[in-house]
Amino acid sequence: MNLTLNIWRQDGPNAQGRMVTYQLADVSEHMSFLEMLDVLNEQLVEKGEEPIAFDSDCREGICGMCGLMINGKAHGPEVTTTCQLHMRSFNDGDTITVEPWRATAFPVLRDLVVDRSAFDRIIQAGGFISVNTGAAPEAHSVPVPKPKADRAFESAKCIGCGACVAACPNAAGMLFMGAKVTHLGELPQGQPERWARVVKMVAQHDHEGFGGCTNTGACADVCPKEIPLDVINQLNKDLRASMSKRA
């Protein structure tokens, strides 16, 4: 298939960005979206033009490194990561617009590459269970009811890609944060720090410049790991409860 691509180019964090149009011919429907960009980049280099910078690593949908706004939708038309999106989702003659994640908390570094360090700092604020190496009790000393273990796992599947933030009209990081609060809050090991954790993480989230949640559900719609919206309810519930628990 032949495609017209409108791609965001930006030389550096403080440079003025612009949309640039490229034509790409003979795209196979079996290519992944990122392989299509690889092919475009090879052609650009051959022509003496600088290739387009974009992040990707595992290319199997698990590391969370890739993430593009494709025709205005985080990770494009399918519910998956950008690396797992294939060109069979597009048609010959299509025009495709490709932009970086857009959020105050995720500044652009170059072209389609953004800085998601804010997510790390939210985890640093409290997204962990404090146990030093060697201090762990025998694994079977604390049974975990299967429904709780399963819900913890479903929440822990988050890959930290940031699509939830990119899709949200408020650029909120609530699905990301709710997933972590739910993961750790469902487990007995996570209880001692549960109430302090949620307060610290929310404070960091707000400090980073993420917006607040207005329950549009846009985040859960695009989440490649299909983290359910109810983790945000859990986050809010825990935050409310923390007010009385900590008093």
Binding site: F128, G134, A136, D150, A152, H183, L187
Partner: peptide, 9 residues
């Protein structure tokens, strides 16, 4: 043991 204590599900 270590991983379970950390909350690995």
């Amino acid at each position: 043991d270590q991983c379970v204590a950390q909350g690995v599900p």
